[in-house]
């Protein structure tokens, strides 16, 4: 089992601003597979990726990548480990002082000694894969939201990482680029055996590429299984989410006081 699991999350507890985000999450991300993490907005999917990447430190529990405890590594070792990971940020987070080309070239320049010629070719290959080779000279401020995300994706895969984490890769994409991205993620996984974690709300696309799915809600793993097994899941909360129904046991609202009393002002104003 050990060698087929790349990332192992055990008994993860995490609190933010006094609110428990995770209370006991366990999950395993198998090597060379695409694992999807789904769940309602605000349940902590982005937070989970940041915990895996060592950006945040859990209150309890452990996250290990290739059997190394991420949060026990020295700063130096952590940075070394991150060279083997790629992360697509929800906001893109391109470097605003560098052009599109230089953004994608950045990981190559800082982590390799490749000649300029080779860097150029690699960057153009990655940009071509996301359909933005023609945008190489633009600055990030000149890109649309969907384009920003695709450049960020090209940058995240520049070094062909072992593990790549996509935070909402499909947001803001038109149907064509959506199809291209789905295909790209699948190809990267098949051709390079890249382990992928996809966080997404686009259920149809996500289920079509994922090998395994975790559904997180209320700080716990609510369900997990292969896409087909989840499709027939009997648990009402899971099927509500998978089939996108507004009414059901999963609350759409952030925890709040009763709506009527809030509106009518019967609740004390703090």
């Amino acid at each position: 089992m050990t060698d087929s699991t790349l990332v192992r999350v055990e008994d993860l507890h995490f609190t933010r601003a006094g609110r428990a985000i995770f209370s006991g999450v366990d999950l395993e991300i198998p090597r060379g597979r695409i694992t999807a993490i789904m769940g309602p907005s605000g349940t902590g999917k982005t937070t989970l990726l940041k915990l895996i990447g060592g950006q945040l430190v859990p209150d309890r529990g452990r996250v290990s990548i290739a059997d190394e405890d991420v949060h026990r590594l020295s700063r130096r070792a952590l940075f070394d480990m991150r060279r083997r990971m790629g992360m697509l940020f929800q906001s893109g987070a391109l470097f605003s002082d560098l052009s599109v080309f230089e953004n994608v070239a950045f990981p190559l320049r800082v982590h390799t000694d490749l000649p300029e010629r080779m860097i150029r070719d690699l960057v153009l290959i990655k940009l071509q894969a996301v359909g933005l080779r023609g945008a190489r000279d633009l600055s990030p401020a000149e890109l649309s939201g969907g384009m920003t995300r695709r450049v960020a994706l090209a940058r995240a895969i520049a070094l062909d990482p072992e593990l790549i984490m996509y935070d909402e890769p499909f947001v803001g994409q038109d149907p064509i680029s959506m199809g291209v991205l789905v295909k790209l993620i699948r190809e990267l996984n098949h051709a390079f055996r890249m382990t992928a974690v996809v966080v997404s709300h686009d259920i149809k696309e996500t289920l079509s590429i994922a090998d395994y799915v975790y559904v997180i809600s209320d700080g716990r793993v609510m369900a997990h299984g292969t896409p087909t097994s989840l499709d027939t899941e009997v648990d009402a909360r899971v099927s509500q989410f998978i089939h996108g129904q507004p009414d059901g046991p999963v609350p759409f609202h952030y925890p709040a006081a009763d709506f009527a009393s809030d509106i009518l002002g019967t609740r004390e104003v703090p």
């Binding site: 940075f79 992360m87 470097f95 940058r155």
Partner: peptide, 22 residues
């Protein structure tokens, strides 16, 4: 500050480059 607010520093850390140095 703007680099921090737009997660540029975080993404640099995730690429394995220490923003304190860079």
């Amino acid at each position: 500050g703007l680099m921090k607010a737009t997660e540029q520093l975080t993404s640099m850390e995730m690429i394995g480059v220490d923003p304190l140095r860079r």
